[in-house]
């Protein structure tokens, strides 16, 4: 039973997870069409270009939706809060752990990234700003 699980690394997300260790939250930006996107991919989902660079996110955004997992979640200590984050750079919303009591959260509230360093890996989480 643990709080998190080790991220699964592939070509697309290797740099992202490495930089999380350095407390940097990277997005990708297509040099072809300027689309900013996340999670990491090896091809731009908008124009299919593979000319992609990493850009650093401000790590700030808003909480779009959230819930607290009480049901079956093998391998994880329950309950825990998850939510969908919309970053200011608008890469598309994505899932994250939320490190705040469920009862205190509100849709639309401002959030910022923080980092959790485990022995063998690091992950991000979001907290109210």
């Amino acid at each position: 039973m643990s709080d998190f699980q080790r991220p699964k690394i592939n070509n697309a997300n290797k740099t992202f997870w490495e930089e999380i260790k350095n407390e940097k939250f990277l997005l990708q930006k297509c040099n072809g069409c300027n689309e900013i996107f996340f999670p990491p991919r090896i091809i731009c989902p908008e124009c299919l270009s593979d000319d992609i660079k990493h850009i650093e996110s401000s790590g700030r955004g808003v909480l779009y939706a959230f819930t607290e997992i009480h049901g079956r979640a093998p391998g994880f200590k329950t309950p825990f809060v998850i939510g969908l984050i919309e970053l200011d750079e608008k890469p598309g919303r994505f899932l994250s752990r939320i490190e705040a009591p469920y009862e205190t959260l509100k849709i639309g509230q401002k959030m910022k990234v923080q980092y959790v360093h485990k022995k063998k890996y690091s992950v991000h989480a979001f907290i109210p700003e």
Binding site: F4, Q5, T67, I69, F80, I82, F94, S96, R97
Partner: peptide, 17 residues
């Protein structure tokens, strides 16, 4: 959904949101 898995998402969690 590799980027979601470290956080313990469950299928019912997506629907709940």
């Amino acid at each position: 959904i590799g980027e979601d898995l470290p956080f313990g998402i469950q299928v019912y969690g997506y629907y709940a949101m």
